[in-house]
Design a protein around this nucleic acid. Structure first.
Lengths: 150, 150
DNA sequence: GTATATGCAAACGCTTTGCCTCGTG
DNA sequence: CACGAGGCAAAGCGTTTGCATATAC
């Protein structure tokens, strides 16, 4: 509750119900969200705010260092999450498109090493794993079973 | 010359002057190119093809495994380059779009581990490093010097 | 009271699509 | 000669912007 107030004060941003809503959605969600996901989540709570407001605030919050923006290759568009929790990477189910965060990055030591070796100034990286989540694995094997019975 | 013919035959795609042009631009360029870059390169050679043709062919070529598509964070849009067998991963310069192959994948052991831990059937992964190549680092520091002198 | 946020609609850039014609195999 | 490929223009999508109004401080 007051956490949001603090975040906004820290960022020198006025407290509005729209920002309160956006941040509370981000706080409740470990996943990467698109602007529209946030818009819909708020709508489901009876809060009808303009999409452009969502976008503008995500930009402000990003500039304030509160929110982080990611481009997820293979999905289009921008994804946002609170910067404090760092789910840098994820498992992505190619069937249901759900994402499962990975809380640590196995690459940190490697990035340094390869950068030095090639004289490259490393600024960022992307890393995703594709596959089937437990749920879709089960659905798949059920479907295969059904096929075999024919 | 005939390399292009072979690539298209392998992919079961008809030989057209448009495809010849697109592939020759990609062959001459180690860089990541946007569809429009290819369009302009061809135009500079007096070859005026429709942008939608470029897009459609890049999609076909990607599906045929000849071309690879990448999203470069902090730039919008899609970037394309020829896919070569051994360049699984790469360093990508966000300034000049040049790419530097990484010959080994540091993730293999990790993929197994994380898949097991989360009950996820791992089918693939993507991994790219973004930053500044040696050349662009130099250009940047020169520009900063010039600014300081003002 | 003043600066900042909001909503709306329109513009945006990049990409995709429909439809009809053209050219390769 | 059939079917895939091309061109053009229009639509699509996610995102941004201009402008007038409303709101926090």
């Amino acid at each position: 509750m007051e956490k949001i107030e603090l975040l906004l004060k820290k960022a020198d941003l006025k407290y509005t119900k729209q920002r309160e809503g956006i941040l509370s959605v981000l706080l409740q969600n470990e996943k990467q969200l698109r602007a529209e996901d946030i818009y819909l989540a708020l709508q489901n709570n009876g809060k009808e705010y303009s999409l452009s407001t969502i976008y503008r605030n995500l930009i402000s919050l990003e500039q304030a260092g509160i929110v982080e923006k990611t481009d997820i290759p293979s999905h289009n568009g921008q994804f946002f999450h609170l910067k404090t929790e760092k789910h840098l990477h994820q498992l992505i189910c190619i069937s249901c498109k759900d994402t499962y965060p990975i809380d640590e990055c196995p690459l940190e030591p490697y990035l340094h090493e390869i950068g030095q070796k090639q004289g490259f100034q490393v600024l960022g990286h992307s890393f995703e794993i594709f596959g089937l989540c437990p749920h879709c694995q089960q659905k798949n094997s059920e479907r295969e079973l059904a096929h075999e019975k024919k």
